[in-house]
């Protein structure tokens, strides 16, 4: 079934935000191929009429009251940040949607 090329690995890595190296592209292409072949057997199961299970327990309608709960202080929120400026998380320039 699957046959994962270097290009596909590169595409997946881009989607997953992984700056993989050239060596890794080769290595992962082979490994992903093996992994996906080994899991492809799920396709053998006749399951057309079977409903999918997204949750292991059959719970419904779990809601919270609309009441404020204490959160974090600004200092706590920013404590783990790689960079901070003016009470905000400082991040590298964003290549945005806007022109």
């Amino acid at each position: 079934m699957p046959n994962i090329s270097r290009e596909e690995v590169a595409h997946l890595a881009r989607l997953a935000r992984l700056a993989v190296t050239e060596d890794e592209l080769d290595k992962f292409a082979g490994q992903l191929d093996v992994i996906l072949q080994s899991v492809a057997s799920v396709g053998e199961v006749a399951a057309q009429e079977i409903p999918p299970t997204s949750h292991a327990v059959p719970l419904r309608n779990v809601f919270r009251a609309d009441e404020p709960r204490p959160g974090l202080s600004q200092q706590q929120a920013l404590a783990g940040a790689p960079a901070v400026e003016e009470g905000r998380f400082r991040v590298p320039r964003i290549l945005g949607e806007e022109a």
Binding site: A13, R14, A16, R17, L18, Q31, L32, I35, P92, R93
Partner: peptide, 23 residues
């Protein structure tokens, strides 16, 4: 860019098995 820093960080910060499963 933020996008590049994300990708470089995740590349450096995750091990091979995590990367495999993420992909």
């Amino acid at each position: 860019s933020a996008e590049q820093v994300m990708a470089l960080t995740r590349e450096a910060g995750f091990g091979a098995e995590v990367k495999r499963r993420v992909m």
